[in-house]
Write a protein that binds this DNA or RNA. Structure first.
Lengths: 210, 210
DNA sequence: AACTGTGAAGTTTTTCACAGCC
DNA sequence: GGCTGTGAAAAACTTCACAGTT
């Protein structure tokens, strides 16, 4: 008889957990101790039923009649998402975009730290960006392997994105956040997410009719 | 007898159009003239059936046996998304993030131009960022109304995001791209999209188990 | 022969609605 | 009384598979 294996939790549910976490941290900052699926939902424009069902995938986090203990729920969600630890991240591309990303202060307290910045252009090498010195892509594979870095942010020109992604995967990277406005194709066991502000803007302009 | 009104096109379909457009422009740059749902799909990791069905919402853009004429399809998608014109955008927040956004060169040739940069802190006022001088939020409502700006990018601290969003909507803004890691609540007829790199990273860490 | 456009089937996601608990 | 957790129903979305066109 085959092992009964529980079905994987839908990716779309996983994608909402960071939003819940974000909202919960805010509620915590506001000094609240307890919340409900309804309160959370109205903040996030998500139905309360949706939130209850999403959370129920991971066990009974709430109390009937009371709601959810905010600090408890934060802890559990962080554990589920594995952000109750600090992940080192490699940033590739030290141009405008890369520099901006490296200065962004929002990573630290949500589980991420930029460990290295890489660039291929000789004039960037050794340049100081924040506390980092830009390193050569030649060193990239070795450093990623050595320091067991699993996550990379890609901020290189679109024309180079695929080639760099291939190198990253080769070096052991398992998740890529791609800021280049181009799709990259990687092994199925490597996660990729995209940041493309213009796509969001274009999405919205569709609705800007009178 | 009530008018028969065609059902709205699903938002999820609209959200994919910018990706199609992006990929098509790339194909065009590569010198290709014609493509197929299959080629497009394999580049985007989307099924060919999905692409055909999405495009069919807007009319027969393709030719049986041949595929899609790239330049024609680009034009039609730009028209559908209304990005065959230049949209002026107001950027609010001239800190690290705002400065980075204002230096990003990817907006121009995809339909958007930053018209003004606003900030509330006195020491930022008048500061030069690229070709812009930072303007006071006091002038914001008037300028947005005067120049009929419909789109804003929000790059202020989370604590101020809701208040600024309210002002923007009041001034006539109909679409907001929010970089602050917090949900904002606005009238139903105002579009909001979010950019939160950390949420994407947290989404991926879920899968980084061995 | 190659490829689109599309009803129909299949799958996934969301909402409903209520039993059960605090 | 207020709220969760959850089967069942409904809605939304994706894939299938093929007739029809070039």
């Amino acid at each position: 008889m085959p092992d009964k294996v529980s079905p994987p939790i839908p990716d779309i549910v996983i994608g909402r957990l960071p939003l819940y976490l974000r909202a919960l941290k805010r509620l915590e900052q506001e000094g609240k101790l307890v919340t409900s699926s309804q309160e959370l939902g109205s903040r996030l424009d998500i139905s309360s039923a949706q939130i209850r069902k999403d959370l129920s995938h991971f066990g009974g986090f709430g109390k009937q009649g009371t709601g959810y203990h905010i600090d408890f729920l934060i802890e559990r969600l962080q554990a589920v998402l594995q952000v109750n630890q600090e992940w080192k991240v490699a940033l590739v591309g030290a141009g405008n975009l890369g520099a901006a990303i490296s200065h962004y202060r929002g990573f630290q307290d949500r589980g991420f730290r930029i460990a290295h910045i890489f660039d291929s252009s000789p004039e960037k090498l050794g340049e100081a960006i924040g506390e980092h010195r830009v390193r050569s892509v030649q060193e990239m594979a070795a450093l990623i392997a050595e320091e067991d870095i699993k996550i990379a942010m890609l901020a290189v020109p679109a024309s180079q994105a695929q080639a760099v992604a291939d190198q990253l995967v080769q070096a052991g990277i398992r998740a890529i956040l791609n800021y280049a406005p181009i799709n990259i194709n990687v092994r199925a066991d490597v996660e990729v997410q995209y940041i493309d502000p213009v796509s969001h803007l274009q999405h919205m302009t569709y609705y800007l009719r009178d």
